[in-house]
Write a protein that binds this DNA or RNA. Structure first.
Lengths: 263, 263
DNA sequence: TATTATATCTCGGGT
DNA sequence: ACCCGAGGTATAATA
């Protein structure tokens, strides 16, 4: 069962301040509902006038102010060095300070409807399937999916602090630079590839082929690819995903049979 | 005072399901605390194993699953076409469906600690100061801040679906393309500017100057700028902000005196 | 809907 | 600490 440090409905400023402080001090997660205005000064500056919102302070100091609509918090602090709670005659003030970059979010609450402090235990494992890194690994293992006779010799090849996704040689022995996108590729991707091709050319004195690998590509991008002398190769993410799954299955079977020897 | 539709501590699956459904139906904000696992299928796929988390469903269908650490939700849905709540013998299942792109987040809760549904009224105005757009407007008004004798003739100049931040002519009458960043500029910014310069050259047959305007720039970027024949001009965001404030003040005084005539 | 560019982007990994 | 690149990026503006 979860450990609830405290729940308050329509608390006084003093009661609210006390529970919030207690929650923050004991590295709990604190949830506050109230009417508030919010000021932010840091990389930019903003001001949010009064309204009813949810404020969340997490155990690591992450600080969020959520409006009743939208995915993103209206104000936030990714991590904080200090959370200060101050009561005045007119309301409660919660200030979240971040050291670097120096930023301050200050919430002023004239009305507090609800405060809760709770210790959440979360050791769950998060697994994301088929991100760009996994696609890269798959194509490294199976370059024939891209082109017959292609040999990949290096993953994340570094040229002057730039990272080339995949590097290898084609059937004719020409160097090939491959840039992978797991979503629709736009101009940025082409420019990235173009930069790598140029860098390689300057560095090694040989002009390599440049191949942009992505499930889709915008129209303007396909045009600029041709103009820049680069190539585009479409991949099917779903098929790669199926391949990945079958490889995982195979591996787990192999693994199991291997373990069996030790039983 | 805020309108609380319901608060439940350690509810049964049935009680929890009822309040969540009621909250979603009446476009309230719903907060759930519980032990859960989360599956996501859509642009990618992920699985999160069991742990104690906060689930928030907003009035517009925005859906968030927050772990006790970190700024970002571990799973989410920016907007949803449907929120389904289903009770089984083993737990509660909340499914958030997004139509386009087709995505599904499914939360399975074997333990529910807390449920709250509340109608938040938030008409607050959010003002963000000095975003990139405002810097562009300021420099459009005061090009002398960038260079003596510079004339800006166009904001957001369009060349083949590409947008040039500022376009003008220098004292010698040479065309100037200006790309603005409000944070430290990196290679991306240079390539963006380089692309615009190239496009202009091809389109109009004249090679323009390209100036990257930013408060800071990375070391590798300053090198590539010089290699590409482009320029960098540092700006002080704080000074621009002060200028903006003084201009706003001036305008408000002018505005007030104008209004006075009608009193 | 598709495309483009910004963001207090965040986050992770490398040097 | 800087720098780079990915992200289920989200979000707004625009064709």
């Amino acid at each position: 069962m979860v450990e609830i440090i405290g729940i308050l409905k329509s608390p006084t400023y003093k009661e609210a301040a006390s529970l919030i402080k207690k929650g923050v001090a004991s590295k709990a997660t604190v949830i506050v509902l109230g009417k508030c205005s919010v000021d932010y000064i840091g990389r930019s500056e903003s001001r949010l006038t009064e309204g009813e919102r949810i404020i969340i302070i997490k155990e690591d100091g992450a600080f969020l102010v959520h409006r009743p609509q939208g995915h993103s918090p209206v104000n936030w602090q990714p991590e904080t060095s200090a959370i200060e709670v101050r009561e005045t005659d007119l309301g409660l003030e919660i200030t979240a300070v971040r050291r670097s970059p120096r930023e301050i979010v200050s919430v002023f609450l004239p009305s507090i409807y609800f405060v809760m402090a709770v210790k959440l235990k979360d050791k769950g494992e998060f697994i994301m399937y088929l991100d760009e890194h996994e696609i890269r690994d798959l194509l490294f293992e199976k370059p024939e999916l891209l082109e017959e006779g292609l040999t990949i010799v290096e993953k994340e090849k570094r040229i002057q602090s730039n990272l080339i996704d995949l590097f290898g040689y084609d059937k004719q022995g020409r160097p090939v630079i491959i840039e992978i996108k797991r979503v629709t590729a736009s101009k940025d991707a082409v420019l990235q590839l173009y930069r790598y091709v140029g860098l390689y050319h300057k560095y090694y004195g040989v002009k390599p082929r440049g191949i942009l690998v992505a499930p889709q590509i915008t129209q303007a991008t396909i045009e600029s690819i041709e103009k820049l002398g680069l190539e585009y190769k479409a991949i099917n993410i779903q098929k790669l995903w199926n391949l990945k799954k079958s490889l995982m299955k195979k591996k787990s079977i192999e693994g199991r049979s291997l373990l069996d020897y030790f039983k």
